[in-house]
Design a binder for these strands. Sequence first.
DNA 1: CTGCTACGCTACGGTTGCGTAGCGTTCTGC
DNA 2: GCAGAACGCTACGCAACCGTAGCGTAGCAG
Lengths: 198, 198
Amino acid sequence: MVEGVESAVGLDRRVARSKDAVLSATYELMLEGGLGGVSVDEVSRRCGVAKTTIYRHWPSRAALVLDACSQMGVAAPQPDTGSLADDLRILVEGLVAELGAPGWASVLPSVIDAAERDPDIARAHASLHRTLMAPFVEAVERARQRGEVAAADEPADVVALLVGPLFYRRWFSREPLDASFVETVLSGMPGRRPRDTP
Amino acid sequence: MVEGVESAVGLDRRVARSKDAVLSATYELMLEGGLGGVSVDEVSRRCGVAKTTIYRHWPSRAALVLDACSQMGVAAPQPDTGSLADDLRILVEGLVAELGAPGWASVLPSVIDAAERDPDIARAHASLHRTLMAPFVEAVERARQRGEVAAADEPADVVALLVGPLFYRRWFSREPLDASFVETVLSGMPGRRPRDTP
DNA sequence: CTGCTACGCTACGGTTGCGTAGCGTTCTGC
DNA sequence: GCAGAACGCTACGCAACCGTAGCGTAGCAG
């Protein structure tokens, strides 16, 4: 990693193989026990890569967790139907599916908790959050340029009103995220009539 | 705790004193490091109560944490102005203040994370959540009986639309919870005209 | 083919934490 | 006062985890 000659890309396949295995096992452990559930010994046991090798690639447990953390979320594809309501419906349905599946959704609380006290994790969380929410913000931005949303409305605010209730249901109230609730949330968005006058 | 004769209420002041000190220190440690930041040794060190004494009152670390957890939130006073908008404004401003202060707001992510995998914590979280949100639900219920809210609207849904964005800002997007955002959230509630036609 | 590099293995040392045991002391309720 | 409960103290045993060292082996690049 420091040699400066051969580390141009990834000349040694052994390195790539080890790193992949380690990161996979780390991610798997995160799913099971949150960030705190990751231990280097257990990662080593799981993926068959020796602990010494792990420490050859990451200087500490924190660095490993942070690395796995940073590669977590995948942005949803950007919809572009020309209608904000339709774009948001697509995005929300994707998000709801993600929230119900065992993936980053089950790790995020742990990340948020850690971010409360660890600046490095806070940075990773910010980046992850940006990635996940970018399509939402972009959809609102475009709608604003089309005049579908008032110029005074901050896209970030609109997104908060939309996804806030979804996150709330998933983690805070732990009520089901059913279709009817999704409808209720969507019907409060700009470009639609308010939900008490349908 | 098992004697059955003297433990009627709290006959021995020593017990009350120890328990109070231990629970206080436990709560303090929670504020600093979340549920995972609580260790029996550290609690003992902090409050000056011997570790053996702690184990005389709680069978395990988990039981202690759970106990401290259960005594966490305090319900806001129930407003009753006769207007849903005003009631909600009062409640929301109280909640925003709480979210900005170092109290249960900084521990909740940790509780949520633990609840994801620990049924006992999940129960404590459900109870805590009920306590914190009860005034909101009650306010909406009353408004519904006054006809201010459509009978078809579930109070829990209305509350989710209201507080979801606040929680989202506090923990997920980590943007400031300023007055203008609070206004944006409040203006989307029933009994008010939608925010794009002021 | 050869030399370098990554790797696995074993074995540490140190820390932290859980939960228990035994004993002497102090406080409390009666 | 007095018996008994609660407490503090010290000292354990055990497990998990972090991070390091040394050595021999296997695989890669040239």
